[in-house]
Amino acid sequence: MTARAFLCRCEDVTLGEIDRAIDRGLTTIEEIKRYTGLGTGPCQGKECTGALARLLVDRGLARADALQPFTARPPAEPITLGLLAAARAPFFAARPEEDPDPKDTP
């Protein structure tokens, strides 16, 4: 087995690949995510984002108080499309004050 140190196991992003991205001038979490694919696998960055942030701070590439993770979007858990399809708009049994105006629905 080739010796590799992984930051993101989901997308197989190694420390070497992070170094290569940094060498090209990419020094924010968002940029490194876009270039290496880090954080885009099944766990959606849960395992790697903190470790990458720490690496950037330790190397003096980012200020701790200025760092932000990339945008968190649903779904935060793996779910099936079939389950999502169980949702039927309008949500919530109609309550008088929330009855949608039928003219507003396309």
């Binding site: 942030a53 760092l67 935060a76």
Partner: peptide, 18 residues
């Protein structure tokens, strides 16, 4: 903190995560 971020909460790096 991913769900809290989705809800609009502000995050801050604490040395290990957000």
């Amino acid at each position: 903190s991913e769900l809290a971020a989705q809800a609009g909460a502000q995050l801050r790096f604490d040395g290990a995560g957000f």
